Computed example of a mutant assay.
Amino acid sequence: MLSNNTDCSLTEVKKSSNAIDPLPPDVDRPMWSVMIPIYNRTIYLEQAIASVIEQMREYAAERIQIELIDNCSTNPEIEFLIQRLAKQHRISVYRQPQTVSMVENLNTCIRRAHGHLIHILHDDDIVLPGFYQSLEAAFTQEPSIGAAYCRHGHIDENNRQQNYLSSLERSTSGIIPNFLKRIAVYSLVDPPAMVVKRSVYEHLGGFRPELYGACDHEMWRRIAAHYPIWFEPQVLACFRVHSRSQTSAFVRTGKNIVNMRQSIETTRSYLPKSTAERIAKRAMEECALYALRNAFRVLSRGDITATKAQIREALKCSYSLKVIVALFLVPFLAVASSLKRYLERNRE
C-alpha cells in the first residue's frame, strides 16, 4: 500500500526532468536493452562490452539492443574505439550533442532503451556468464517483479577479485521479503548487478539529478517501495573499484556521503510513517559507519584530505555510540594496516 507521501512524490516525478515517457505502440521491442554510458575513459570499455557480447551470441538480433551512450567525450581515442567496436559487434552508438551531467546521461540510457528489460552497465564494470539468462528467467517466472539483481563482487584495476561479496539475501532464487526495510538502511546493490523493467522507470521516473553519486541507491529503494524485487544468489556481476572512478573522486571531497545522506532523506517519503523515523536513523548510522570505513581505507594509503572529508561527513550523519567507537578506531586500524603491508613488502 502506497503512503500519501509516496503518491505525492510520484506526482512530482511525472512533472520533473527525470520523467520517462512510454514508447510509441508501433516501436519494435526487444527483450533486452543493454545500455553502456561512456565518457572519455577507454581503458575498460572493451572488457565491459566483451562480457556482454559473449553471453548474447545465442540471442537473435531482434531480441537485444546494445547501445553506447557517449556523453560528448573529448578524448579523441574514444571515437576510434567506439567506431571499431560498433563495426565489430552488433551495437549502436548515440552521442550527446553536448556534455550533460552523469545522471542525465543515465536517464538518456533509459529513454533510448527499447527493450522490456533494461540493464545499465557502466563502462568499467562487467557481467559474468549466465547473467542475462538467469535474470531473464526471473522475470519470466515472476511477472510481478519490478527489478531483479544478482549477488556480485568487486574487482580492481587489474581484474583481481577483492575481498568483498554483496550480502546473500536468500540461498535460493526468488523474491526478497520485506526488502524495503533492508535496502532503506543498507547499500546492498551495485549498478552492474541490477536489471529493471522499462515500464517501472516509466511509472516511477528515472534517476534523480540532485542525488548524483547516490542516485542509484535511491532508485533501488524507490523501486522496492512499489514492486517486489528478485534476488539471484549466483555471483554474476563485478563492480570495479579503481582510482579513475567517479566514486573515488567523490570520496576525496566527501560528496559521496553528502549524496547518500540526501538519498536517505528522500527515502523517508517511501516508508510507512510509523517506522520512517526509526529506519532513517538507522540508515544515517550505517551511512556514518560506511564513511568511517572509507576513512580507514584512505588513511591507510596516506590520503589525509579524503580521510578528513569522510570523517567530517560521517559526524553529520550520526553521533551514535557505534559511530564514536568506530571513529576512535580509525587511526589505530589504519596504522596496523600500513604496518602489515610494510612487513609483507619487506618479506618479499
Results as ranks from 00 to 15, higher is better:
I223N: 08
E67M: 15
D7H: 11
T266Y: 14
T247R: 14
I120V: 15
E77Y: 07
V100Q: 14
A237Y: 05
I264N: 12
I20M: 01
A61H: 11
V34A: 06
H242N: 08
R268A: 05
S51I: 05
C317P: 03
Y290F: 15
I110N: 01
R244H: 09
H226W: 02
S269T: 12
M56D: 03
A214I: 06
E58G: 04
E285S: 12
T74L: 11
N294D: 02
S3W: 00
E344A: 11
E136T: 13
E104K: 12
N163W: 03
L135E: 09
R151E: 11
T11A: 15
L106C: 13
S245A: 04
T42W: 01
T253R: 11
S243V: 12
A137G: 05
F231P: 02
E62W: 08
P228L: 00
E169Q: 13
V13L: 04
A309Q: 06
M219F: 05
R90A: 12
Q234M: 10
A326L: 08
A249V: 10
A309M: 09
V200W: 05
E348N: 11
P228Y: 00
E265C: 06
S338F: 09
R57P: 00
P76T: 06
S320T: 12
L45H: 02
N71D: 11
